[in-house]
Amino acid sequence: MALTLEQMRHTAKLARLELSDEQLIELMRPINALMEHFERLQALPLDEVEPTSHSIPVFNAFREDVVGETLRREDALANAPDARDGLFIVPRIVEE
């Protein structure tokens, strides 16, 4: 079940990682070592088993719909690489 270079390229794109083929090839060795290790799960009798996403049962956690403590806008923006006029600045998305 080893990943091919093509699958590595596709997955890196999905994960928004700009990696060269050289970097991807270097990553393939450790990743495929794990993929090989995952093979052992294929033999387990799991058809009738319910999946567990959480070790303790957690249901919807409701609370009263009231305003709580929130961050001040300037605190929320303080770590931004670029901010102006109370807004996060990002590279242009829509062309003029």
Partner: peptide, 24 residues
């Protein structure tokens, strides 16, 4: 993703390019 905090690299590459470069 280089928008709200932390490192930002490649702002000249457009918003997707910036995210990809920042994360890599």
């Amino acid at each position: 993703d280089g928008v709200r905090y932390g490192l930002r690299v490649g702002a000249e590459k457009g918003h997707i390019g910036m995210m990809e470069a920042t994360r890599a």
